[in-house]
Amino acid sequence: MDTKFYKLLLAINLFVTIGLCLAYYKSNKIKPDFTNDIIKVRGIVVVDSSGVERVIIGSPLPDPTIHGYRISRGDYGSISGIMLYDSEGQERGGYVTDNGYGNIFLTLDSKTQQNALFMADPHGGAAIQVWGRNGNKISLSAGDEDIYLDLTKNNKALKFKTDEE
């Protein structure tokens, strides 16, 4: 009597366990389907095969790391948008708005500094700037009142005639 009861109990146990395993396996195979959903999140991170964060869409975006440490964007430097990172995790450029004044800008950075900036002011006007080290810089901007073209070579401004005819 006892043996029969235990055999039955064991069979039920096995049956339930196999059922649970199958249910768990099947549930893991189901991929979430967001095609009809609107996804609302504070951030999205894309990582590469090594786990290095390569793209972040977020608000606010984190402070940048640089060669083994982290630097602050400053008290008024908070930004939101899309940022790209190289394979070492170094911030290399983004398409962002700042969380204070309201500029929107597109930046391209080397491993040590910002080298290109395309920016629009919230009140009108826009500017393009490209620069290297050692005081080489080209600025092009247009506002409601005027336009500007500034070229600086080795920290010396190159002179242009304005409104040349």
Binding site: G43, V45, E53, T65, Y69, M83, G89
Partner: peptide, 14 residues
Amino acid sequence: IQQLVAINPLSYTD
């Protein structure tokens, strides 16, 4: 409350 960090977990800092 989760925060974005922009960390490369492989990097040796020092």
